[in-house]
Measured scan of single mutants.
Amino acid sequence: AQASVVANQLIPINTRLTLVMMRSEVVTPVGIPAEDIPALVSMQVNRAVPLGTTLMPDMVKGYA
C-alpha cells in the first residue's frame, strides 16, 4: 500500500516543514506520497495541521 505523509506534531499555520514534523504512514484517504517528504522540507503549510493529520496537496503552499 502507498504510504502518505502524516503530521508528527501540531504544525502551526505558515510553518516551514522540517523532517521531524513528518512521518510516513499507510492511511485512507491517501495524501501526499511519502517519497515526496524530501521535497516538502522548507515548504509552508497554509493551515494548522493537527498531530496525526494526513497532509493533502492543498495544505502545502507551492506543492500542488
Rank of each mutant, 00 (worst) to 15 (best):
L19S: 12
M22L: 14
A7E: 00
P57W: 06
T54D: 01
K61E: 14
V20C: 05
L51Y: 13
P29M: 04
A64S: 15
A39C: 06
D58L: 12
I32P: 01
V5Y: 00
T15A: 12
T28D: 15
A3N: 07
Y63M: 04
P38Q: 10
V20L: 15
V26N: 08
M21G: 03
Q2Y: 09
Q2E: 14
D36N: 14
V6C: 04
M59D: 15
D58Q: 11
V30A: 12
V41P: 02
N46I: 13
Y63T: 04
V60F: 06
T28I: 11
V5E: 01
R47E: 11
L40V: 07
E35G: 07
Q44V: 08
M43V: 05
L51T: 09
S24M: 07
L55F: 08
G52R: 04
T18C: 04
V27Y: 02
P38N: 10
V30L: 15
I37Q: 06
L40A: 00
L19K: 12
Y63A: 06
L17D: 02
G31V: 02
P12F: 06
T18I: 09
M43R: 14
A48M: 12
E25M: 05
G62K: 07
V26G: 04
V27P: 01
A7W: 02
P12R: 05
V30G: 09
I32S: 00
T53K: 14
R47V: 13
V41M: 08
N14L: 10
L40N: 00
G31Y: 02
R23D: 07
A34F: 07
V45G: 02
T28S: 13
L19E: 07
T18H: 14
P12Y: 09
I13F: 08
A34D: 12
Q9Y: 15
M59F: 11
S4V: 02
V49W: 02
V60S: 01
A34S: 14
M21H: 12
L40D: 00
P12K: 08
Q44W: 07
E35M: 08
L55V: 11
L51E: 15
E25W: 05
R47K: 13
S42G: 11
N46P: 03
V60A: 01
T53W: 13
M22Q: 00
A3W: 05
E35S: 13
P12N: 09
P33W: 15
K61V: 15
A7P: 02
T15I: 11
N8K: 08
N8A: 15
T15E: 09
V5I: 14
P50L: 14
P12E: 13
D36R: 15
A34R: 05
T15R: 05
I13H: 15
S42H: 09
M21P: 02
N8C: 05
I37T: 06
S42K: 09
P29W: 03
T53Q: 12
P57C: 05
K61S: 14
Q44D: 06
G62W: 04
A34I: 08
R16N: 11
L55M: 10
V5K: 00
K61C: 07
A7L: 03
R23W: 04
V27G: 03
M22I: 12
P29V: 09
Q44I: 15
P29G: 03
A3M: 14
Q2S: 09
T54V: 10
G62E: 10
G52E: 04
M21C: 03
T15W: 09
T54R: 03
P57Q: 09
T54H: 03
L55Y: 00
D36C: 06
P50Q: 11
V20I: 08
V30H: 11
I32T: 01
M59T: 05
V30W: 09
L55R: 00
T28E: 14
V49F: 03
Q9M: 13
M22C: 03
S24L: 05
I37P: 00
P57M: 06
I32F: 03
E25L: 05
R23M: 05
L40K: 01
L19P: 14
I32A: 01
T53N: 13
L19M: 13
A7K: 01
P38V: 10
P38Y: 15
V60P: 00
P12H: 11
M21T: 03
R16Q: 15
N14Q: 12
Q9K: 12
K61M: 11
M59G: 03
A1I: 13
V6G: 00
V30C: 05
A64C: 04
P12I: 05
L55Q: 01
R47C: 04
A7Y: 00
I37E: 03
L17V: 03
G52C: 04
M56Y: 08
V27R: 08
V60Y: 00
